[in-house]
Design a protein around this nucleic acid. Structure first.
Lengths: 236, 236
DNA sequence: TAACATGCATGATTTTTGTCATGTTTTTAA
DNA sequence: TTAAAAACATGACAAAAATCATGCATGTTA
């Protein structure tokens, strides 16, 4: 079980992480600091569930979380990967709906919960934060549209390569500089790529044969990033 | 060439359409009314282009517009269909980026252009409108995430049925109550579904054979909506 | 430690989907 | 009005991807 530091104050947290809340005015940050509730979720635990009503937003202090969505036939689709500093639960809150996705801890994770009323009232009184939220939503929308296009137009081989690069961008490497610092099952990777688990397993083996990655159970090492980028066939 | 009424004032426009701007305070609506620039785009004309910088937002007064995104290999992916009352161009503006999609008129269309500075200043001074924008962005994000999941998990047959229903939801029927009131080429439908044009043509023929639709060039009539819904295999 | 469950891996096969080729129809423009 | 271009349609084929089956490894629990 991971050991966490004593819950940081939002003031120091805002310095450490690039959360949207950094941009809130000082007075509101201390108000948030007073009312926030810190919590620790163990690996595999659910923070909130698709279909239930939101009572606030969550800000990750430390840890990793997946946001996933169930397809009509019950298959998981992972729509976002979150890390320290990331906020979640705001989409449902802002559109006044139930959660459209579930949040599940990928490892032991410490989060702050900010009650709905406080979040809304701060947003109402802090235009700067409201603009940050709009920017955040716009960026997420952009990412979703790009992913949509890739899902529609790119073969699985390219999407898997892209997903590996995305995981690396999100969570980075371990100390050795080549091992992805998150452990995902093959099934989870498949649910991120949008394909069958077997296809993912097969293609990962191919990538290994091609010398692009090294596999050791859930440990994945990126050996040749440039080749991976070429395989992903990215424009940007 | 379609005939349009004289450009309506925003006051009357806001009543007629369910635009986000309805929710702005009266004083700002008249300010928008003073500064807006109305324009007519003919079918096929481009309102703005992916990659260029936004100078304001567009509000559709009357007409139909597609928002499309080019894939890395240059293939079009239609990411949204817009109608009267819909606003576009806000995503790029709010995230401070270039347009990530192009807007092209599907028929003769009248739009109001609202300059960037005005839009931002109204947004800064009208919290209600800011919340409406956040809600709009959240709703779009939700739709994108659902579409993403379907794209990843559903076969083309289901996605085509879903797309036909989506077109009907967006643009409705003509006076006869069964003909979709928009003319899209088979290629455009394919770029909405995320598949090859030939697959779309073939499946449309099958739907016709099954008695679900009737085809007359670009005119598509929905004969059995219930069957279509079943074919789309939708949960909601 | 044995028994079981779960995840990983791989082969064989089928299904789905895309691509290429060709002909027809419709639309557009000279 | 006619020629050219674009869109539609369909068959044949190839490629991509899913599914089913099986075995091995790993990890978990009684």
């Amino acid at each position: 079980m991971t050991h966490f530091h004593d819950p940081t104050t939002c003031q120091s947290c805002a310095q450490r992480f690039a959360s949207v809340f950094c941009k809130a005015k000082q007075e509101f940050i201390s108000e948030i600091n007073d009312q926030k509730i810190c919590n620790i979720y163990k690996k595999g635990q659910t923070l909130f569930n698709e279909g239930s009503y939101p009572f606030g937003v969550y800000c990750i202090n430390e840890g990793k979380v997946k946001l996933s969505h169930l397809g009509d036939d019950g298959k998981e689709q992972i729509i976002r990967l979150l890390r320290g500093g990331d906020v979640m639960g705001y989409r449902a809150l802002l559109s006044g709906e139930r959660y459209s996705a579930s949040a599940i801890a990928l490892e032991d994770t410490q989060v702050c919960f900010i009650p709905k009323e406080l979040f809304i009232s701060v947003l109402k009184n802090d235009t700067g934060l409201a603009f940050e939220m709009m920017k955040l939503l716009s960026d997420e929308l952009h990412k979703a549209e790009v992913k949509l296009t890739h899902l529609a137009q790119k073969p699985i081989r390219e999407r898997l390569a892209e997903t590996l690069l995305f995981i690396k961008e999100t969570y980075g490497y371990e100390a050795d500089g080549i091992t992805l610092s998150v452990r995902l099952s093959r099934e989870e990777i498949a649910n991120l790529v949008g394909t069958a688990t077997e296809s993912t397993i097969r293609l990962l083996s191919e990538f290994k044969k091609d010398g692009m990655v090294e596999l050791d159970g859930k440990k994945i090492k990126i050996l040749r990033q440039k080749e991976l980028i070429k395989t992903a066939n990215l424009q940007d």
